[in-house]
C-alpha cells in the first residue's frame, strides 16, 4: 500500500481565457518510510502539488489517495472530513517553522496532539518525550523567541510527527537554516521516515539538501519532468 498516490493530478486556477494550469497530470506514488523531494524553481508548481496533497487546495482533475484511501477523484470526494484527515494522517513542516509564538516548545507540540483529541496529560508526556528525543529536553518551557532557528525547526518537526502521521509534508524546511542546521534537519527527517514508517514529501529548491532523499522529482512549468533515485514510478 502506498502512503501517497497521485494520478494525473491537475490544478487549474481560473476559467476560460484566464485559466492558468499550475499543475498538470502529476502522477507518482510514495511508499511508507520513503523520503521524497519535489525539486523545482519558484512558480514551477511545487507548492500547488504540496497543497493538493495536504488537502488544502482542491485538485481540478485527477486522483489523490492517502494511505490507500481515495480522497480526491475529479475533486474532493463527498462526505469526507478533510480537517480530520489532515490532523490524523498528515503532518506539516513549514519554511519558517510557524511555531505559535505564545506557546512554549512543549505546548507547541501538545497543541497538535490535543487538537487530535489526545488527553492533556498524555499530550504533555508525549510532547516531552518527543522533544527530548530530538535533543530539546532542556528547551521544553522556552518560547520560540528564545530558541535558535534549528531548534525551532526541530520543535516544528516534533509537532508534525506528534500524531504519528502516515505522511509528512515539508515546505522548504531548510530554506531558513544555514547549511549545517539544514543537513541536521534533513538527517532527522530521514531518520523519522525510517523509524516511524512515514512517507515524507519535501518541497524544496535547495540543491544543497538533495543528497539524503530516496527519490527526487523535478518539477517545471507544472509538470513532473524527471525523477532520480533508487526506485519509484513517474
Amino acid at each position: 500500500m502506498y502512503a501517497i498516490e497521485v494520478e494525473r493530478l491537475t490544478k487549474i486556477y481560473g476559467k476560460g481565457e484566464t485559466a492558468v494550469t499550475a499543475l498538470s497530470d502529476a502522477t507518482f506514488q510514495v511508499r511508507p518510510g520513503e523520503l521524497v523531494a519535489i525539486l523545482g524553481p519558484s512558480g514551477s508548481g511545487k507548492t500547488t502539488l504540496l497543497t493538493a496533497i495536504g488537502l488544502i487546495n482542491e485538485p481540478t482533475h485527477g486522483r489523490l489517495a492517502i494511505g490507500g484511501a481515495t480522497i480526491a477523484d475529479e475533486g474532493w470526494l463527498r462526505g469526507l472530513d478533510l480537517k480530520k484527515i489532515r490532523r490524523e494522517r498528515l503532518g506539516f513542516i513549514f519554511q519558517s517553522h510557524n511555531l505559535i509564538p505564545f506557546l512554549t516548545a512543549q505546548e507547541n507540540v501538545m497543541v497538535a496532539l490535543e487538537i487530535n483529541e489526545v488527553g492533556r496529560a498524555e499530550a504533555k508526556k508525549r510532547a516531552g518525550e518527543l522533544l527530548t528525543a530530538l535533543n530539546l529536553g532542556h528547551r521544553l518551557h522556552n518560547y520560540p523567541s528564545a530558541l535558535s532557528g534549528g531548534e525551532c525547526q526541530r520543535v516544528a518537526i516534533a509537532r508534525a510527527i506528534a500524531n504519528r502521521p502516515q505522511v509528512i509534508l515539508a515546505d522548504e524546511p531548510t530554506a531558513a537554516l544555514d547549511t549545517e542546521n539544514g543537513k541536521n534537519v534533513m538527517g532527522l527527517l530521514k531518520k523519522l521516515a525510517v523509524e516511524n514508517h512515514s512517507a515524507i514529501l519535501v518541497v524544496t529548491h535547495d540543491h544543497r539538501m538533495v543528497e539524503g532523499f530516496d527519490r527526487i522529482f523535478q518539477v517545471s512549468d507544472g509538470r513532473i519532468v524527471g525523477e532520480t533515485g533508487n526506485a519509484g514510478s513517474a
Partner: peptide
Amino acid sequence: IRVIATLKLIGSQNRV
C-alpha cells in the same frame, strides 16, 4: 493570522 492558518492547517476545529 499565521497562527490561525497554522492551526487550521494542522487540522484544528473552528471552535478552537
